[in-house]
Design a protein around this nucleic acid. Structure first.
Length: 968
RNA sequence: GGGCGAGUGGCGGAAUGGUAUACGCGGCAGACUCAAAAUCUGCUGAUCGCAAGGUCGUGAGGGUUCAAGUCCCUCCUCGCCCACCA
C-alpha cells in the first residue's frame, strides 16, 4: 500500500481483531486492570459523539495498559430497560425486546467500526432474563434485610411518562430529567430502598477512593449531612379548649441550639400532622384556607414564591430555656420533608425567619454578638475583667457617600469615632459627645441605631485591666459642613488623632475593631446578623459564652430536662424504587392476603416480563402488567392460596447498580458472580463516566455495593478505586448538541467521510483536557488525518531505505539526534498517558513526528513511534508496525527510554536583565555550570551593550532551567 | 443564597515560580500545476520602526520575588451542580 487508505486499513484490522480478540483472562498471572466506562443506553439514535469521547478515552487507557503488561478488562454492555425503548417500540410497531435487539446491533457495529478493544465475550444486557434474574435476586437481598419496603407516600409523578420518580431524577426546575415534563405529586404505594441508612457510609467511603473533589463534594452535598439537635417544645393548652386533651409536643430540628433564646416563634409546615390538633377554634378558618391554598400550589410555584406567607394557628408553645411564650405559625417556607417539618424561628440570625418576622411583626431578639477581632492586645490572664458599653458612630457626609473615620496616628489605627458610655448618659448622648471631642463636628442628625451589637474583649494597657465590651452602633448624618469646622478637643489632639472622610469603599481599611461586613450590610438594608460564631447575649445564664460552647451547654441542659436529643439530619431521602411502566425488571414479590408481601423463591427467578399488546399504563397509576391476569394471578409461595404478583417494575437505575460485577462472570447461572472471580478482579481500577451521574448512578451503585459488602456478597467496601468524569462535547456553535437544534455530529458519518476511525479518535483525544467541556471543531479531524498521512508516508520512507536517509546526514550526529527525539517523545507520551493528559500526548506525537521527519528516521524508531501512537490510532499503528517489523504490535511492549538520551549536547541559555530576556546563547551541555554560565552571561556582547557602565548588583544562575538573570 | 471550577492569540488549547502562546485549526505568502484540489515550504499576539531593535501583553487592581499565567490579598465576569435543607 503506497498511500494511506483508512478504509482499507481499518477494515483489515477490525477483521483481524474479530479473529484475534482482546480478552480479559480470569485469574491471569499478569497484574489485573479493570478499565470501566459507563455502558450506554442503546437508543434508536445510535452512538453519539459524547459516547465516542468516553469510550475512546477508555480504549486509549486499556490499550496502553495492555502494552505495559497488564491483564486488562475493558468490558462493554447495554443498559436497555427504560422508557425511550418502550416509546421507540411503540413508534416502530415492534416489541421493546425487538427494539433493544435492533439498537444493540447498531451500537455493536459502531463500536467495532471505532476499533474499541472490548472483551466481546463478556457483553451484558440488563434486559436479558439471564441478567435481570440476578437484579431481582439482589433486590430480594435488600428486601430480606429490611432495606426494601413499601410505603404509601406522596411521590414525584411524571404525568407524561405516567410513572413515579426518585428525587434524584427531578431537576431543580421541578421537571423530569429525561423528558422535562413538570413533575406532580401523587399519593401511591411505592417500593422504597433505605439508602438513607447508608448516608454516613456513603460520605465516609469517599475517603478511601480516588475521586476528583468536585465529584466527592457533589455527593457529600447531595447527602447533605448536618449535625444538631432535635428540640421539643410543649404546646400550651389553649384556654378556650379545655377538653383535657394531652399536651402536644412539637419537635424541631436545628443546627444552632445556641440560638434558642432568640427563637421567638415556631413555624410548622402546612402539612404537619399536628396542625389540625393545635389550631384554635378562632384560627381554624384561616388555617384551613391557607392549607388549601398551599395544597393547590405546585411544587415549583411554591419554590418560586419569593414572598413568605403564613398564618397564626392561635396556639403557643413554651421556650424551654427562656420560658417565653412562642406563637405557633404555619408557613410554606418550612418543608414537610426535611427534619421534623417544623422549625424554631430565630429571626435575628436567619434570613428567612427574619423576613417572616418582619412581615408579621414578630419579635426579633439578637442572642449572638459577633466577636470583634482584636489584633492588637488580646485579653490577659489574671487581669481584672471590666464590663463596659461603648458606642461606635457612623457619621455620613452631608453630600457624598463618605463617612468620618479617625486616624490614631500614634497607634497606627483607623477607626470610627467611638468611646464609652458614661454613667447617666444615653447612648445617643455619649455618641454626640465622642464625635465632637474627636472630630469637632457638632451639628449632627441622629438617624438610628443598628439593631445588632458587637462584642469584644481586650487588654487595656493604660488601665491594666481586661475590657469586656459591648458595642452599639449609631448612625448620624452631618447637617452642614461649612458651619461646622472640625475643632479638636485639646486632649484628643495631643493623642495625635485626625478626622478623615472616607468613601464607603475605603472603609475596608479600618482597623478590624469595626465590623465592616455588618456596617455594609446595615447600610445596604440587610438587617440580618450573620454570626457563625460569637458571644452569647440576651440568653440568661449562657451570656458571655462563646456560641459554640453555649450550644453544647444548652443541649446538655435540654437533655437533662428530656426536651432534646442530639441528632443528625440528611437531605438525602429514601430511594423511590417503583416504576409503573412495562419495560423494566418486574419486582419479584407476590402479595398474599394472608402472608403479606412474599418474595418469589430463588428457584422461580427470573420473573420474566410477559408479552403484552400495549405498553401504556393505566391512569390509576398501575403498570400495564396489572392487566395480564395469567401473569398476575399466582399461588402464594408460602401458603399456596391465590395471590397476586407485584406489578411495579424497577427504575432503569436498577440494572446499572451492579453491572460491573457481572462482567467479572458474565455467564454464571448459579450466582450473580463467582466469589473467586469477584475477588480476583476486585475493585474497578478506573471508572470513567459522565458528571451528570454523580448523584444518580454513581451514588446508587456505591450504595448497592456497600450493602453487598456488609452481607459478604462482594470482597471490597467500595466498587471503584478511582473515578473520573469526562467533559461534554458541545456543538461547534458552543451550544449543546441536540437533535432539535440540528447540530449533532454523528461519529459514523465522520468515519465515512473518509477520515476514518483513527483520525476521529485522535481528534477527540487532542480536542481538550479530558474533563473539560469544549466545543467540537469539525476541522480538527482534518488535522489529525493529515498527521496520520504524514506518519504513513514517513514509515513508507523508512522502509524503502534506511541507508539513503543516513547518507543525507552525518552518521554520528544523526543516530544521537534520533535517539534524543525518540526518548523525549516516549517520555512525554508515557507521562501524559499516566496523567490522562491525552491532548498533550497527541501534541507530543505530532511534535515528535515533525522532528523525526527532519532527520529521516530508521525503521526501528518508526516502529516505536507506532507503539506510542497505537493506543490512540490502533488500526494504522498495527498496520505500520507490521509493515516495519513483520511482527504483531500486540506482542510488543510499550517503549521505554534511556535517561541519558534526554540530555542535549548543546543547550540554549537565556540571559535576562532584571527579569527580561535580553540575549540567548548556545552552550555545550557539559559547560552548564554555575560559574561558566555566569561568566558567559556577564561577558555576552548584547548584555554588555545593555548594561553599559551600570554596576551589576547580583547575578542569579538557574542551571536546571539554563537561565541567567542579571540584576542591575 | 450555597458548593465547585474557569478566565491566555482570530479559534481549540500549551506552559515543574524561570524564554508566554507548544501542538493543531484558521489566515497570509510561495513552490508544484494549464488550472484547481491535495501536498510541501515559510510567515502569523498587539504596537512603533526602513532596519537593528524597542514598548506593551495571560479578566481588573494590589502584593511577595532577582523572576509571576503560575504564589498571596481584593474585585469583576463566565460555566456547572445544588438550592426556602432550619
Amino acid at each position: 500500500m503506497e498511500k494511506y487508505d483508512p478504509g482499507a486499513v481499518e477494515q483489515k484490522w477490525q477483521q483481524y481483531w474479530s479473529k484475534n480478540p482482546y480478552l480479559a483472562l480470569d485469574f491471569g498471572k499478569k497484574p489485573k486492570f479493570v478499565m470501566l466506562t459507563e455502558f450506554p443506553y442503546p437508543s434508536g439514535d445510535g452512538l453519539h459523539l459524547g459516547h465516542t469521547r468516553e469510550y475512546t478515552y477508555g480504549d486509549i487507557i486499556a490499550r496502553y495498559k495492555r502494552l505495559q503488561g497488564y491483564n486488562v478488562m475493558y468490558p462493554m454492555g447495554f443498559d436497555a430497560f427504560g422508557l425511550p425503548t418502550e416509546n421507540y417500540a411503540i413508534k416502530n410497531n415492534i416489541t421493546p425486546q425487538e427494539a433493544t435487539e435492533r439498537n444493540v446491533a447498531t451500537f455493536t457495529d459502531q463500536f467495532k467500526s471505532l476499533g474499541y478493544s472490548f472483551d466481546w465475550t463478556r457483553v451484558i444486557n440488563t434486559t436479558d432474563p439471564g441478567y435481570y434474574k440476578w437484579t431481582q435476586w439482589l433486590f430480594l437481598q435488600f428486601y430480606k434485610h429490611d432495606m426494601a419496603y413499601q410505603e404509601e407516600s406522596s411521590i414525584n409523578w411524571c404525568p407524561r411518562c405516567k410513572t413515579g420518580l426518585a428525587n434524584e431524577e427531578v431537576l431543580s426546575s421541578g421537571r423530569h430529567e429525561r423528558c422535562e415534563t413538570l413533575v406532580e405529586k401523587k399519593k401511591l404505594k411505592q417500593w422504597m430502598l433505605r439508602i438513607t441508612k447508608y448516608a454516613d457510609r456513603l460520605i465516609e467511603g469517599l475517603e478511601n477512593v480516588d475521586y476528583p473533589s468536585r465529584i466527592a463534594d457533589q455527593q457529600v452535598n447531595w447527602i447533605g449531612r448536618s449535625e444538631g439537635a432535635e428540640i421539643s417544645f410543649v404546646v400550651a393548652p389553649a384556654e378556650s379548649e379545655t377538653s383535657g386533651e394531652a399536651t402536644h409536643k412539637i419537635k424541631v430540628f436545628t443546627t444552632r441550639p445556641d440560638t434558642i433564646c432568640g427563637a421567638s416563634f415556631l413555624v410548622l409546615a402546612p402539612e404537619h400532622p399536628l396542625v389540625d390538633r393545635i389550631t384554635t377554634k378562632d384560627a381554624k378558618p384561616e388555617v384551613n384556607s391557607y392549607k388549601k391554598m398551599v395544597a393547590a400550589k405546585s411544587e415549583i410555584a411554591r419554590a418560586e414564591e419569593k414572598n413568605k406567607t403564613g398564618v397564626f394557628t392561635g396556639a403557643y408553645a413554651t421556650n424551654p430555656i427562656s420560658g417565653d411564650k412562642m406563637p405557633i405559625w404555619i408557613a410554606d417556607y418550612v418543608l414537610a420533608t426535611y427534619g421534623e417539618g417544623a422549625i424554631m424561628a430565630v429571626p435575628a440570625h436567619d434570613e428567612r425567619d427574619h423576613e417572616f418576622a418582619s412581615k408579621y411583626s414578630l419579635p426579633i431578639v439578637q442572642v449572638v454578638a459577633a466577636e470583634e477581632a482584636n489584633p492588637v492586645d488580646p485579653p490577659r490572664a489574671g487581669k481584672k475583667n471590666t464590663k463596659r458599653q461603648t458606642v461606635s458612630c457612623l457619621v455620613k457626609h452631608p453630600e457624598k457617600d463618605e463617612y468620618l473615620t479617625i486616624n490614631w496616628t500614634k497607634r497606627g489605627w483607623r477607626t470610627l469615632p467611638k468611646g464609652g458610655i458614661e454613667d447617666g448618659e444615653t447612648a445617643e448622648e455619649a455618641a454626640r459627645r465622642e464625635i465632637t471631642e474627636e472630630t469637632g463636628y457638632k451639628n449632627l442628625k441622629y438617624l438610628g441605631e443598628m439593631p445588632y451589637c458587637r462584642h469584644s474583649c481586650f487588654y487595656a494597657a493604660h488601665k491594666d485591666i481586661n475590657r469586656d465590651i459591648t458595642t452599639i452602633y449609631l448612625h448620624f448624618q452631618l447637617e452642614d459642613l461649612d458651619r461646622d469646622q472640625p475643632e479638636l478637643d485639646e486632649i484628643e489632639a495631643a493623642e495625635g488623632i485626625e478626622a478623615v472622610w472616607a468613601p464607603r469603599s475605603d472603609l475596608s481599611s479600618l482597623t478590624p475593631h469595626d465590623p465592616l461586613d455588618i456596617i455594609t450590610d446595615w447600610l445596604d438594608g440587610k438587617m440580618i446578623c450573620h454570626t457563625d460564631c460569637g458571644t452569647m447575649i440576651n440568653s440568661g445564664e449562657f451570656d458571655g459564652l462563646l456560641s459554640s460552647d453555649a450550644s453544647e451547654k444548652i443541649i446538655a441542659k435540654l437533655e437533662s430536662m428530656g426536651a432534646a436529643s442530639r441528632k443528625t439530619s440528611f437531605k438525602l431521602r429514601d430511594w423511590i424504587f417503583s416504576r409503573q411502566r412495562y419495560w423494566g425488571e418486574p419486582i419479584p414479590i407476590i402479595h398474599c392476603a394472608d402472608c403479606g408481601a412474599v418474595p418469589v423463591p430463588d428457584k422461580d427467578l427470573p420473573v420474566v416480563l410477559p408479552k403484552v399488546d400495549s405498553y401504556e399504563p393505566s391512569d390509576t397509576g398501575e403498570s400495564v402488567l396489572a392487566s395480564v391476569p395469567d401473569w398476575v394471578n399466582v399461588p402464594c409461595p408460602k401458603c399456596q392460596k391465590p395471590a397476586k404478583r407485584e406489578t411495579d417494575t424497577m427504575p432503569n437505575w436498577a440494572g446499572s447498580s451492579w453491572y460491573w460485577l457481572r462482567y467479572f462472570d458474565a455467564h454464571n447461572d448459579q450466582a450473580f458472580a463467582d466469589p473467586k472471580k469477584l475477588k480476583y478482579w476486585g475493585e474497578v481500577d478506573l471508572y470513567l463516566g459522565g458528571m451528570e451521574h454523580t448523584t444518580l448512578h454513581l451514588l446508587y451503585s456505591r450504595f448497592w455495593h456497600q450493602f453487598f459488602y456488609d452481607h459478604k456478597l462482594v470482597p471490597t467496601p467500595e466498587p471503584y478505586a478511582a473515578r473520573r468524569g469526562q467533559g461534554i462535547i458541545l456543538a461547534s456553535d458552543g451550544r449543546k448538541m441536540s437533535k432539535s437544534l440540528g447540530n449533532v455530529i454523528n461519529p459514523t458519518s465522520v468515519i465515512n467521510d473518509g477520515y476514518g476511525a483513527d483520525a476521529l479518535r485522535l481528534a477527540i483525544a487532542f480536542l481538550a483536557p479530558f474533563d473539560q467541556t469544549t466545543p467540537w471543531n469539525p476541522e480538527g479531524v482534518a488535522g489529525t488525518y493529515r498527521f496520520l498521512v504524514r506518519v504513513w508516508n514517513l514509515c513508507q520512507q523508512a522502509q524503502k531505505s534506511d541507508s539513503e536517509t543516513v547518507k543525507a546526514i552525518p552518521a554520528e550526529g544523526w543516530a544521537a539526534e534520533l535517539r534524543r527525539v525518540r526518548a523525549k517523545t516516549v517520555k512525554k507520551v508515557r507521562d501524559d498517558l499516566d496523567g490522562m493528559h491525552f491532548n498533550t500526548a497527541v501534541a507530543a506525537l505530532m511534535g515528535g513526528l515533525n522532528d523525526l521527519s527532519k532527520h529521516g528516521p530508521d525503521k526501528e524508531t518508526m516502529a516505536d513511534f507506532c507503539l506510542l501512537l497505537s493506543s490512540f490510532a490502533p488500526h494504522i499503528s498495527h498496520e505500520l508496525y507490521h509493515q516495519l517489523t513483520g511482527k504483531q504490535l500486540d506482542t510488543a511492549e510499550f517503549p521505554t527510554y534511556d535517561e541519558k538520551d534526554l540530555v542535549d549536547t548543546e543547550v540554549e541559555v537565556v540571559i535576562q536583565i532584571n527579569g527580561k530576556v535580553r540575549s540567548k546563547v548556545k552552550v555545550p551541555a557539559d559547560q552548564v555550570t554555575q560559574e561558566t554560565l555566569q561568566s558567559i552571561a556577564e561577558n555576552d556582547v548584547r548584555v554588555k551593550q545593555f548594561i553599559g557602565s551600570t554596576p551589576i548588583k547580583k547575578t542569579i544562575v538557574v542551571t536546571k532551567n539554563r537561565l541567567v538573570n542579571i540584576v542591575i
